[in-house]
């Protein structure tokens, strides 16, 4: 099995690991770094439960080779502060139920607000459609993103 040495920043900390070249980012984060907030559901880059930010860009960690993280900043839900306005909005607005899509939804929302601090409802719905939530019917999630935007989440 060929391996490579991977160096990247994970939630603000420099990390280095010897990994198989074929390693998948989601499994690396979950199994090597204990980031179990990276949820695996469809494993086909469709549902968004495993969404992480790679240099601020949302990617499906289930379908991303780990070597893509070389030199990059990887943000998982574990790297989102408790005081983060998006996380708080999801918690306080009960914009979750089973919670399995929630880490991905929060990271997706953070990426949106970083690009567009004051999105319209339509823009939020279009963007958040990268994530599948089977529980909530989405409306409370969309409202949470609006609440976070009003609270200045892009700052």
């Amino acid at each position: 099995m060929s391996t490579l040495t991977l160096c990247f920043r994970l939630n603000g900390a420099e990390v280095t690991r010897e990994i198989p070249t074929s390693a998948v980012l989601a499994e690396l984060l979950r199994e090597e770094f204990g980031c179990t907030g990276v949820k695996l559901a469809c494993s086909r880059a469709v549902c968004g439960a495993c969404t992480v930010l790679l240099d601020g860009v949302p990617v499906a960690a289930c379908a991303t080779f780990a070597f893509r993280a070389e030199g990059a900043e990887v943000t998982t839900i574990e790297g989102v502060a408790e005081e983060d306005p998006v996380r708080r909005a999801f918690a306080e607005h009960s914009a979750f139920q089973c919670g399995y899509c929630t880490p991905g939804m929060i990271l997706l929302a953070k990426a949106l607000l970083a690009r567009n601090p004051a999105p319209t409802r339509e823009e939020i719905a279009a963007w958040m459609s990268s994530g599948l939530c089977r529980c909530t019917g989405y409306q409370m999630i969309l409202e949470a993103v609006e609440i976070a935007a009003r609270a200045g989440a892009s700052a």
Binding site: C35, T36, G37, V38, T76, I77, E78, V80, E82, R87, R88, F90, A91, E92, S94, F96, G99, T102, P103, I106
Partner: peptide, 9 residues
């Protein structure tokens, strides 16, 4: 379950 589920814990 708000804190656990929104922090990935």
């Amino acid at each position: 379950d708000a804190l656990e589920k929104t922090t990935g814990r």
